[in-house]
Design a protein around this nucleic acid. Structure first.
Lengths: 230, 230
DNA sequence: GTCTATAGACGGATAGAC
DNA sequence: GTCTATCCGTCTATAGAC
């Protein structure tokens, strides 16, 4: 049986990915060596190169594995809202909940590594490494397109650039909430309430408050002069 | 004259710090070697160790140099508001403006490296490196203490943990706005409007909207049951 | 204070036996 | 697919002349 011969094969690949994910999260890409990864995964050093080729390819695969699932779920959540709305624009709060709800959900999954990955991902949005940013952009292209489109339809009177900025702010708030809790622990001592349901509530209140905030004066003036010209 | 002998000395130190700051921002700490730094600063490799001892000490000094000024200005801005309020609690919007206004101000200074540093700092709040987080916490201790105290006084009915979380969200939104613009450029194509004054307006609208948002249902319930018990 | 030269450790990657 | 052994580059840090 080929089962006996290849029994360990798929498991080895996954063990490498799991170890790499955890170590990248804890120490960053550069500070994590292949030897640390293979040591934690209990596999041979050469196995990484056999399975993934290079360290960069391994990094790429760590992200691809999770992002595929994450973004598929985000798109499904948005589609469900669009179906429920039956042709009408989806409410902004629903759009935001679809995107960030799935994110927090994955960040709450401590059993299958989702929490580890989301902390890693939050930090990686601002990663200097060029090739990392490049494949992140590729993986996100469809999701950004769909969610931005939904927000533009939901808020036809708000300038698109304004929506883009606010989405950017929301991403930042969420990423810090997930990735940077250590930072605030150091700032403020205790931070014991890590219940994901409460985090989701707190984050959603904040995000929706920000999204619904009055537009800045300059933007409002621009819109005013446009309206008068028409 | 000792001027002749030591003429280059203070300049060398600053050149090293400037080069390190820019390279840390562009590539991260680990990916930036001493050789890259000395190459860009046009100084000898051994000069870094002579002036700073170790690479970690150099990293520390890159932050200390700017943070001292940044946080001094934040504290001054808050003090000015407290004086203006004359004993009464400072309005939450004024407190937020004091903190983030100074931040955006420094992020707008492209002449003296403030912009570079703020992008670096934004990324560093979630830095995995332990010793970096440690000295960040030390540098921020007084500022966090003063600003949190002001917010507690301004919002005596809001649970402190809630204020802490919202401040955390605000820090995330700001840091992404400054450090992660590249990320959203990749997400969304053009992002041409980088005028700091408009960024400040946009960010402030969003932050204040989030800060003033209705409290999450669970928190409100907790407060309700407390009030009934009293 | 500044330089050259180098020690000494560790990094990613690969060749080739099994 | 897995292993050992090793190449070769780069890293931080330092010794010691000037």
């Amino acid at each position: 049986m080929s089962e006996t011969t290849h029994k360990q094969t798929p498991e080895t690949r996954e063990r490498i990915l799991d170890a790499a994910e955890g170590l990248f999260m804890a120490h960053g890409f550069e500070a994590t060596s292949m030897r640390m990864i293979t040591g934690m995964a209990h596999v041979n050093l050469a196995a990484v190169n056999y399975h993934f080729g290079t360290k960069d390819a391994l990094i790429h695969e760590v992200f691809r594995r999770r992002l595929r699932d994450l973004n598929r779920r985000r798109l499904a959540a948005l589609s469900a809202e669009e179906v429920a709305a039956g042709g009408a624009p989806v409410k902004p709060s629903r759009i935001v909940e679809a995107f960030f709800g799935v994110s927090i959900e994955m960040a709450s999954d401590t059993q299958h590594g989702g929490a580890t990955f989301m902390r890693l991902l939050g930090r990686t949005y601002t990663e200097p490494n060029e090739f990392v940013r490049k494949f992140l952009a590729e993986e996100y292209a469809e999701v950004v397109d769909r969610f931005m489109g939904a927000l533009y339809r939901a808020l036809p009177d708000v300038p698109r650039e304004e929506i883009l900025w606010r989405f950017h702010f929301m991403m930042g708030a969420m990423s810090y909430a997930i990735a940077g809790t250590d930072a605030l622990q150091l700032f403020a001592g205790e931070f014991d309430d890590k219940d994901p349901a409460r985090l989701m509530e707190r984050l959603m209140s904040f995000l929706l408050g920000g999204l619904r905030a009055p537009l800045p004066a300059t933007t409002a003036q621009h819109m005013e002069s446009r309206r008068n010209a028409a």
